[in-house]
Amino acid sequence: MSEIKITGYKCKACGRVHYPKHEQCLTCKGRDFEPLTPDGNARLLAYTQIFNLPWGFDERFLIIGVGEFENGIKAMGQIKADSLDKIKTGMELKPSWEPVRHQYGEPVYGLKFKPLE
């Protein structure tokens, strides 16, 4: 499995997990954070299937969602599915790190989720 190149930040004072990075904790303004990498699978918090994609995408649609990892990191990613038929809020997702788009001819890597079950 490819490495998920995401770093979350857990506030050392209050424990709140941040992603993306903040210079001060959203809850307590603490400035000391413990770096976290995503742990295990994720649970689907929200999703949509987008048609009318922006410049840079040739697909007819993308399914995009936000997953929450077991250690509390919440991150957006592209969901690998042909339709929303089997997608449900709360379902388990297996993450991977793959090209999510191309910019200036180069692949841009990011988070993808494969629905389990």
């Binding site: 929200a46 999703y47 949509t48 299937q49 987008i50 009318n52 994609l53 922006p54 840079g56 995408f57 993308l62 995009i64 969602g65 936000v66 957006m76 990613g77 592209q78 999510v100 788009r101 910019q103 841009v108 990011g110 988070l111």
Partner: peptide
């Protein structure tokens, strides 16, 4: 967010 192809309609959809 942006690299994934999310749009404002997409945000509103979620």
């Amino acid at each position: 967010e942006y690299p994934y192809g999310i749009t404002l309609p997409g945000m509103a959809g979620m």
